[in-house]
Amino acid sequence: MDYRQLKKDIIAYSKSIGIDKIGFASSDPFIEMKNLLIRQQELGYQSGFEEKDIDKRTDPSLIFDGPRSIIAIALAYPSRMKDAPIGKKGERRGIFCRASWGIDYHILVREKLEQLASYIDSRIPDARYKLMVDTGELVDRAVAERAGIGWSGKNCSIITPEFGSYVYLGEMITNLPFEPDEPLHDQCGECRLCIDVCPTGALVQPGQLNAQKCIAFQTQTKGLLADEFRDKLGNRIYGCDTCQTICPKNKGMDYHVHPEMEPSPEIAKPLLQPLLSISNRDFKEQFGGISGSWRGKKPIQRNAIVALAHFKEKSAVKELIEVMKEDIRPVMRGTAAWALGKVGGSEAKEALLEAEKEEQDEEVLQEIKKGLDFFTIKDEV
């Protein structure tokens, strides 16, 4: 088999099925990434969502028998929403990050990889491969960097010359000996805008992220949001794009090449107040098709409450009181109590004082106290 010609044919085929960028890498262990992950683990910077076994994350031979090469792909997604609804007083809106616009990218990228695999099967019947999209063991960023898809930016995103960092990544480990492509040189230069504007200082230095402090990670947690992050959340209900939108390499990057990725404005920027009482069924029907729904409705609802507090939305007071009094989940009751203090007003204060007498959960009582403390501060001012 002429693998050089096969590689050219695979590249041509990938373009015909809508893969925006493709690269080939060796299947050698990712030693540098392993050292970085060990350091991240030592510092407590991991999110906890990753594969726990660092060796599996960095050595293809531990998850695939006889790897010879890895094929990496990238699909470009839009950075701007057409006909985006504008929130206003009484109709405040939240925002899902761009990587959660349109169909769940895991589905779309996997479909492209499966099409690629079928083509390879038609050419090499005894070919073997393993497909991965985000949830696989290997670090997508490390594979994409080695395969020449883009360079690893200071914001820990893969940045491509053609599409900026607005790309979804996937890869395929194979038993075929493809010639590797050349990695790209780092093009961030002296720029450190992403580090300087990170809302929580999660980018501790170029290429190093403390995931525990990252707003994107915090929006996906299910417990009470730590105090230090509440005022940083803004109206984000899933994810954070700050380190991407500030990046000069993303200026003017907005590609609408995949119809499946086009955001539905009412899903990507939903009204906040209806989220407080949405049923499981309605949540699944409305948001189940996007990647931002993977943790269920609880984090989204909690974040919606924090966003209403951010706006100090008076029209939401009655609904927040109902959540504080009636919701069976302590996280929701507590977050609503804190939010009522932020929003303020006599109705909110009276409800908090009443709830303080009736609430049994200690964590919720602490949040009620925080809510009432806002009134003490206002009185002092």
Rank of each mutant, 00 (worst) to 15 (best):
315 S>Q: 13
347 E>I: 12
146 R>F: 05
153 G>K: 04
368 I>Y: 06
274 P>H: 13
373 D>E: 15
110 R>L: 14
125 P>V: 01
9 D>H: 07
274 P>W: 10
363 E>H: 07
67 P>F: 03
10 I>D: 04
297 K>L: 05
180 P>S: 03
351 A>L: 04
294 W>H: 04
129 Y>N: 03
297 K>P: 00
371 G>F: 03
5 Q>G: 06
337 A>R: 09
146 R>S: 12
282 D>M: 09
35 N>F: 04
305 I>K: 11
262 E>S: 08
117 A>P: 03
122 S>V: 02
138 L>I: 03
246 I>K: 11
164 G>M: 08
166 Y>N: 09
289 G>I: 00
257 V>E: 14
110 R>D: 07
143 V>D: 09
329 R>E: 15
340 L>Q: 09
50 E>Y: 05
15 K>R: 15
190 E>K: 12
104 D>C: 03
120 I>S: 12
22 I>R: 04
178 F>C: 12
353 L>T: 08
18 G>S: 09
121 D>K: 13
67 P>M: 11
240 C>L: 07
306 V>Y: 13
276 L>T: 01
330 P>L: 02
121 D>Y: 08
238 Y>N: 13
283 F>W: 02
35 N>L: 14
115 Q>Y: 10
185 H>D: 15
357 K>T: 14
37 L>F: 02
1 M>K: 13
78 P>D: 12
359 E>A: 02
128 R>N: 14
104 D>F: 08
301 Q>S: 10
